[in-house]
Simulated assay, not measured.
Amino acid sequence: MNALHNRFLGVVLALTSILAITGTSQAMAASAEDLERNARQALDTLYKSHPVAETLSRDAKAILVFPNIVKAGLVFGGSYGEGVLLKDSEVTDYYNSVTGSWGLQAGAQSYAYAVFLMTDEAVSYLEKSKGWEIGVGPTVVLVDEGVAKNLSTSSLKNDAYAFIFSQQGLMAGLSIEGTKISRINR
């Protein structure tokens, strides 16, 4: 009976976490000006911590920047954040990023991520699709320290490169797989 009680409590806490994330998505919704400012500040932070990202930005056709993703979970989890699409340093559209997950996980954290779209095809796919699911469509490489050491403009072969940065909080595991990115109106 005690195991059943603990499992039920875990499910209730997980659902509460998910509802907290989705319920606060409206509260997290920043004005277009705030979102643009936060995205530019996030890019500056990324460039200082990963100079290769700034090098990539020079050849990128567009950059999708999510300055604040909030993730929480206990067995079941989710994340939400809003971002901008930059082309030639100008904001052209607004997007949200939503992830749902289940498995061995516990905790809460916030982070930022940026996806450097290197081909016109990748940009076109994002703009024309009803929602881009990472892992479907253009090839996205998650850049970590090992990949960054070997990355140069002459070695670029993929459609998109993603950086996760500015992590705060404690959560076991972090990825952008299973994330759906959709255009939103501002």
Rank of each mutant, 00 (worst) to 15 (best):
N96I: 12
D93Y: 15
L85M: 12
G77Y: 01
L86S: 10
L104D: 12
G103I: 08
K128W: 09
S101M: 07
V84R: 06
N96D: 15
L86T: 04
D120K: 07
V75A: 04
V91R: 14
A106W: 10
S110V: 11
S89Y: 10
F116E: 02
G78T: 05
G107T: 04
M118R: 01
S124W: 10
D93K: 09
F116N: 00
Y113D: 03
G81N: 09
Y113R: 03
L104F: 14
M118T: 03
G107F: 03
S89K: 09
T92E: 13
Y125C: 06
Y95E: 12
G107S: 09
Y94E: 11
V91N: 05
E90G: 04
A106S: 10
L117A: 01
S101T: 01
G78S: 05
Q109V: 09
E90K: 15
Y80H: 14
Y94T: 06
S124Q: 13
G77S: 07
T92D: 11
T92Y: 08
E82K: 14
K87C: 13
A106L: 15
V75E: 05
V98L: 06
L86N: 12
A112R: 09
E90V: 07
L86C: 05
F116L: 07
S79Q: 02
S79H: 01
Y125W: 06
M118G: 02
D93W: 14
A106M: 14
E82Q: 15
V115D: 03
Y113G: 02
A114W: 03
E127D: 12
Y113W: 06
W102H: 05
V98H: 05
V91M: 15
S79F: 00
Y94M: 13
F76W: 14
S101F: 14
Y111R: 05
Y125K: 02
S79I: 03
Y94L: 11
A108L: 11
E82G: 13
T119E: 00
D93R: 15
E121Y: 13
S89A: 05
E121G: 05
A114E: 00
V115Y: 02
E121I: 08
S124A: 13
T92H: 11
G78A: 08
L85K: 05
A106F: 10
Y125Q: 00
G103K: 10
G77K: 03
L74R: 06
T99N: 03
L86E: 01
E90L: 15
A108S: 07
V98S: 08
N96M: 13
T119W: 01
N96E: 13
A114D: 04
L104R: 14
D93C: 14
S97T: 04
S79G: 02
A106N: 15
G77D: 03
N96A: 11
G81C: 08
Y125E: 03
S110E: 14
G100D: 00
E82Y: 04
Y95L: 07
Y94D: 09
S79M: 01
E90C: 04
Y113T: 01
F116P: 00
E90T: 09
G83Q: 11
F116Q: 01
N96W: 12
V98W: 09
Y80W: 11
G81R: 10
A122H: 05
Y94S: 12
V123I: 08
F116A: 02
D88G: 10
D88T: 09
